[in-house]
Simulated assay, not measured.
Amino acid sequence: MKKFIATNGREVLKTITESGVTGYMDASIRADGDTGLAEADRRITRSQPS
Protein backbone atom coordinates (compact mmCIF):
# COMPACT_ATOMS: atom_id res chain seq x y z
CA MET A 1 0.00 0.00 0.00
CA LYS A 2 1.03 3.54 -0.69
CA LYS A 3 -0.21 6.45 1.43
CA PHE A 4 -0.54 9.96 0.00
CA ILE A 5 -2.45 13.22 0.41
CA ALA A 6 -5.04 13.76 -2.34
CA THR A 7 -5.62 17.13 -3.96
CA ASN A 8 -8.63 17.61 -1.68
CA GLY A 9 -6.37 17.26 1.39
CA ARG A 10 -7.60 13.80 2.41
CA GLU A 11 -5.16 11.06 3.39
CA VAL A 12 -5.57 8.18 0.91
CA LEU A 13 -4.27 4.62 0.74
CA LYS A 14 -3.69 3.11 -2.70
CA THR A 15 -3.47 -0.65 -3.07
CA ILE A 16 -3.18 -3.01 -6.01
CA THR A 17 -4.59 -6.51 -5.66
CA GLU A 18 -2.88 -9.65 -6.91
CA SER A 19 -5.23 -9.62 -9.90
CA GLY A 20 -4.16 -6.09 -10.82
CA VAL A 21 -7.19 -4.14 -9.57
CA THR A 22 -6.32 -0.75 -8.08
CA GLY A 23 -8.24 0.41 -5.02
CA TYR A 24 -8.24 3.71 -3.15
CA MET A 25 -9.35 4.09 0.47
CA ASP A 26 -9.90 7.24 2.51
CA ALA A 27 -7.54 6.71 5.45
CA SER A 28 -9.05 9.52 7.48
CA ILE A 29 -12.34 7.72 8.19
CA ARG A 30 -12.42 6.84 11.89
CA ALA A 31 -12.43 3.15 12.76
CA ASP A 32 -15.57 3.46 14.89
CA GLY A 33 -17.40 4.65 11.77
CA ASP A 34 -17.03 1.14 10.37
CA THR A 35 -19.04 -0.21 13.30
CA GLY A 36 -21.97 2.04 12.45
CA LEU A 37 -21.84 1.05 8.80
CA ALA A 38 -21.76 -2.63 9.70
CA GLU A 39 -24.78 -2.22 11.99
CA ALA A 40 -26.72 -0.36 9.29
CA ASP A 41 -25.87 -3.13 6.82
CA ARG A 42 -27.17 -5.78 9.26
CA ARG A 43 -30.43 -3.86 9.71
CA ILE A 44 -30.93 -3.50 5.95
CA THR A 45 -30.13 -7.17 5.35
CA ARG A 46 -32.59 -8.31 8.04
CA SER A 47 -35.39 -6.11 6.70
CA GLN A 48 -35.19 -7.51 3.15
CA PRO A 49 -37.53 -10.37 2.23
CA SER A 50 -35.88 -13.72 1.57
Rank of each mutant, 00 (worst) to 15 (best):
residue 19 S to R: 10
residue 2 K to Y: 08
residue 10 R to Q: 13
residue 9 G to E: 08
residue 38 A to G: 00
residue 38 A to Y: 08
residue 41 D to N: 04
residue 36 G to H: 08
residue 39 E to N: 09
residue 50 S to Q: 06
residue 14 K to E: 15
residue 34 D to I: 10
residue 47 S to E: 03
residue 4 F to R: 12
residue 43 R to Q: 03
residue 22 T to M: 07
residue 15 T to V: 04
residue 47 S to M: 06
residue 21 V to D: 03
residue 7 T to C: 04
residue 42 R to C: 01
residue 48 Q to V: 05
residue 34 D to H: 06
residue 27 A to Q: 07
residue 13 L to H: 12
residue 28 S to V: 00
residue 42 R to N: 03
residue 7 T to A: 15
residue 34 D to V: 07
residue 28 S to Q: 12
residue 31 A to F: 09
residue 34 D to Y: 11
residue 15 T to R: 07
residue 7 T to R: 14
residue 6 A to S: 15
residue 29 I to V: 15
residue 40 A to M: 11
residue 36 G to E: 11
residue 23 G to D: 01
residue 3 K to N: 07
residue 15 T to K: 04
residue 4 F to L: 14
residue 24 Y to G: 00
residue 24 Y to I: 03
residue 3 K to G: 02
residue 29 I to K: 12
residue 21 V to P: 00
residue 45 T to N: 01
residue 41 D to K: 12
residue 37 L to N: 11
residue 42 R to D: 07
residue 49 P to L: 02
residue 11 E to H: 12
residue 8 N to M: 10
residue 32 D to I: 08
residue 24 Y to T: 04
residue 14 K to I: 05
residue 47 S to P: 01
residue 4 F to K: 10
residue 35 T to Y: 05
residue 41 D to G: 01
residue 39 E to I: 14
residue 19 S to T: 13
residue 40 A to I: 06
residue 17 T to L: 08
residue 26 D to C: 07
residue 12 V to Y: 15
residue 9 G to V: 10
residue 24 Y to W: 09
residue 14 K to N: 08
residue 23 G to P: 00
residue 19 S to A: 13
residue 15 T to H: 08
residue 10 R to N: 13
residue 50 S to E: 08
residue 2 K to R: 14
residue 27 A to V: 01
residue 43 R to W: 01
residue 23 G to W: 01
residue 2 K to C: 01
residue 5 I to P: 00
residue 25 M to C: 01
residue 34 D to L: 13
residue 33 G to L: 03
residue 44 I to V: 05
residue 49 P to H: 06
residue 42 R to L: 09
residue 17 T to M: 05
residue 44 I to T: 03
residue 37 L to I: 10
residue 20 G to R: 07
residue 36 G to W: 09
residue 9 G to D: 11
residue 12 V to T: 15
residue 2 K to P: 02
residue 28 S to D: 15
residue 19 S to G: 06
residue 5 I to S: 10
residue 6 A to P: 03
residue 5 I to A: 09
residue 24 Y to P: 00
residue 45 T to M: 01
residue 5 I to N: 09
residue 44 I to W: 02
residue 27 A to I: 04
residue 30 R to D: 10
residue 36 G to S: 10
residue 31 A to L: 12
residue 18 E to P: 01
residue 7 T to G: 15
residue 6 A to M: 07
residue 38 A to F: 11
residue 16 I to K: 15
residue 44 I to P: 02
residue 37 L to V: 10
residue 9 G to W: 09
residue 31 A to V: 10
residue 20 G to S: 07
residue 22 T to C: 04
residue 42 R to Q: 09
residue 9 G to H: 12
residue 8 N to G: 14
